[in-house]
């Protein structure tokens, strides 16, 4: 479990709005993901968590900082070109909205086999169609779906197809950007179980972007908390939920609704004032494996 698969160092991404205004969507974010773990990145809308995912996948080019994937700096054009095939096959992304991320005019079999066709990978199981059938079975769907189109599938099914497509490349790192946010409760549970199965039985490594903390708590090994482009706290899941240190983390955790009327009504959310948020500071290790953003980097 100790090999570091993804090492993000001082990642900064700015969006230029016009000549004067610049938004720091991601500001000096550093974290590591070990092989075989599920790393959750949580935050509210606009916190920059999706931007991190996109930088990791080379969708955006970061303004500064390094992203080392298996020791290759993916932000460096020369290193990227030299390792292009490896980078494009072993990292895969799953998006929130499977309605728009799957081509509506392709059949399920074609969608799943497309990455293999693009990279000219010889299918292990004979034909591309066999491969698609295998992957579909892997995510819990039978072969009768092979010739269906995305519009004929339900949201949960579509998300499974998106996962099957990502798995067809036998990736080592799966980036899932809010993969369950648009699904119904009972379907969410199915997809969460699938992710858990993939990680436990097959050792996939996940970067799991989410805003629903109860899901993150259930699924992730370690969690990073982002607010306004800053990573403010990183800790093992149990440690983070039992002993949150940063005021924003406390506010976020206290806001999780509990499906239990008596306790939910007794709960008072911990208020966090974004205006007083201290951007400066650096991550310091407050407890073993538990990093928190503090000013000056010193003790409390």
């Amino acid at each position: 479990m100790d090999e570091i698969l993804l090492d993000v160092r001082g990642l900064t991404h700015r969006f230029r709005l016009n000549r004067r205004a610049v938004v720091r969507a991601v500001d000096g974010v550093s974290f590591q993901i070990r092989r075989g773990e599920v790393f959750g990145l949580v935050g509210e809308s606009g916190s920059g968590k999706s931007t991190v995912a996109r930088c990791v996948m080379n969708v955006y080019r970061p303004t500064s900082g390094q992203i080392l994937y298996k020791g290759v700096n993916v932000c460096d054009p020369r290193q990227f070109r030299a390792n292009r095939a490896m980078l494009q096959t072993t990292r895969q992304i799953i998006f929130q909205d499977s309605t728009s991320s799957l081509n509506q005019r392709m059949s399920v079999a074609d969608i799943i086999a497309e990455p293999m066709a693009i990279h000219h990978i010889r299918p292990k199981r004979g034909t591309l169609r066999d491969e698609a059938r295998f992957q579909l079975k892997y995510v819990g769907m039978d072969a009768s779906y092979l010739d269906k189109y995305p519009s004929e599938l339900s949201g949960g099914m579509r998300q499974r197809v998106a996962i099957a497509r990502a798995l067809s490349m036998e990736p080592e790192l799966l980036v899932a950007d809010e993969p369950i946010a648009s699904l119904d409760v009972s379907i969410q549970a199915q997809i969460i179980n699938l992710f858990r199965h993939l990680q436990e039985e097959h050792g996939f490594t996940f970067l799991f972007i989410a805003h629903d903390l109860s899901v993150v708590r259930y699924l992730c090994d370690r969690v990073g908390v982002m607010v306004a482009g800053k990573l403010v706290e990183v800790a093992p899941t149990a440690e983070l939920f039992d002993n949150p240190l940063h005021p924003y983390t406390k506010a976020l955790l206290s806001a999780i609704p509990i499906p239990d009327p008596r306790r939910e009504r007794a709960r008072t959310p911990y208020a966090f004032d974004p205006a007083r948020f201290e951007r400066d500071g650096e991550l310091v290790e407050a407890a073993p494996g538990h990093l928190v953003l503090r000013k000056g980097g010193g003790a409390e």
Partner: peptide
Amino acid sequence: EIVETTEVT
């Protein structure tokens, strides 16, 4: 321009 900055902060 204002839209963007408002959304972010």
